[in-house]
C-alpha cells in the first residue's frame, strides 16, 4: 500500500532557488557580545558571510554599524533580515541592495617584495590604480588602495607575479545612494 519508506524522519530539502548577493546594514547597540550574537546567528543557522565590517559610528549613543555582505536565495535573505531584526540589541536592519545599487568600498594594504624591473612595474601599476605607497624599503612596498571590490581584486591579481607576499583587507563598507539616510 505504501511506497518504501525513506530512512529519515525529516522532510527532504526543497528545490533550490538561485542565490543572490545582498549588502545589509545593521545598526546595533555597541555592547559586549553583540557581534558574537550576529556572527553566531549566521553560523548557527547556516547563512553565508562574504564580508563583514563593524565599527562604532555614533559615539554618543554608543551605536555601531555592521555591514554584512551575504548570499542566499530570496527566502533565505528574508529570513536573515527577520532573524537579525529580532535580536534584542539590534536597532535597525536595512537591505541596501533592495534600496538599489549601494555605494560599496573596501580598503586593502598590500605588501610587495622585489627588485629591479618587477619593482618598477609594481610602482607603475600602483600609480595607475591610484594606490598609495605607505611604507617602502629598497626591497619592498606597502600599498594602500581603496575602491570597489573588483578594482581591489584586479590590483591584487596584477601584483601576484610582481612579488606579492601579504594582503590585508577591511571588508566592505557600504552606504545607500541619494539624500535619504538610514
Amino acid at each position: 500500500m505504501n511506497a518504501p519508506l525513506p530512512s529519515t524522519h525529516y522532510p527532504a530539502a526543497t528545490g533550490a532557488q538561485s542565490a543572490e548577493s545582498h549588502t545589509l546594514s545593521v545598526l546595533v547597540d555597541n555592547e559586549p557580545g553583540v557581534l558574537a550574537r550576529v556572527i553566531g546567528l549566521f553560523s548557527g543557522r547556516g547563512y553565508n558571510i562574504d564580508s563583514l565590517t563593524v565599527s562604532e559610528t555614533e559615539h554618543q549613543s554608543h551605536l555601531s554599524r555592521i555591514t554584512i555582505v551575504t548570499t542566499g536565495t530570496p527566502m533565505v535573505i528574508e529570513q536573515i533580515k527577520s532573524q537579525l531584526d529580532r535580536l534584542v540589541p539590534i536597532h535597525d536592519v536595512t537591505d541596501l541592495t533592495v534600496a538599489g545599487n549601494p555605494l560599496e568600498r573596501e580598503l586593502a594594504l598590500i605588501k610587495v617584495v622585489g627588485k629591479g624591473e618587477k619593482r618598477v612595474e609594481a610602482l607603475r601599476l600602483a600609480e595607475a590604480f591610484r594606490a598609495q605607497v605607505i611604507d617602502a624599503s629598497t626591497e619592498h612596498f606597502v600599498f594602500e588602495i581603496t575602491g570597489r571590490l573588483n578594482k581591489i581584486e584586479q590590483f591584487v591579481t596584477l601584483m601576484q607575479p610582481l612579488g606579492l607576499v601579504e594582503v590585508s583587507r577591511t571588508g566592505i563598507a557600504a552606504i545607500g545612494r541619494g539624500q535619504e539616510a538610514m
Binding site: N2, L5, T8, Y10, P11
Partner: peptide, 11 residues
C-alpha cells in the same frame, strides 16, 4: 505520516 511524505499518505 512516514517521513518525507505528504499528509494524505498516512500509516
Amino acid at each position: 505520516i512516514p517521513s518525507g511524505e505528504a499528509h494524505n499518505n498516512m500509516l
